[in-house]
Amino acid sequence: MKRRAFILCATALAAALSPIAAAGAAPKGQRGLVIHDRPRPVAAIDIRDAESRAAGLDTLKGRPVLLNLWASWCMPCVAELPALDRLKPALDAKGVALVALSLDRSGKVAVANTFARLGIANLDIRTDENRVAAEKLDAPALPVTLLIDREGREIARFIGAAEWDGAAAARLLDALAAGSPLTPDMAPPPVRMGAAP
């Protein structure tokens, strides 16, 4: 009985603690570019390509990675895909791998449909085989884009959609490619949703 009372109390406390979430789950103010004080390890995720072959980050060893987490049901995610698609050839030329990882539960079908609808030409189909990416990469809300250095460590992340193909983003991504320090002034402008895409 004591234990039960404790659980009730704890549950109620937890509820009281959780404030109204402003549209999302990230802590207040946690939007835009977050540069980490020190690089963080990136949890291993079983990423698959369109043929269900393994395409994890370990296959990109030695290259910096821009890892975008998105889903077809997330409108701001879908809204930023065309910019990422335009960005990909330039990033490849810089030696940075761009991985747009879909968290859709229906896997590549949802991705293929979204890509077709948007006319995505350069992005590869990448799916989260075990559907654990949101949890393992600490992404309570989407989109989130991780900046991963050539040692495979997360050095920064961008929470929300961004103008990835603009001038500010280019400076950020040049720094990522060169392995030079990232600074807050490199933050690309956030993109807010206009009408539904």
Partner: peptide
């Protein structure tokens, strides 16, 4: 709600993973 303008919670993902 579905028209989240900047970031969208992954809560439905969580629920659907839990159901699985």
């Amino acid at each position: 709600y579905t028209f989240c303008p900047d970031i969208c919670p992954t809560i439905l993902n969580t629920l659907s993973a839990a159901l699985e």
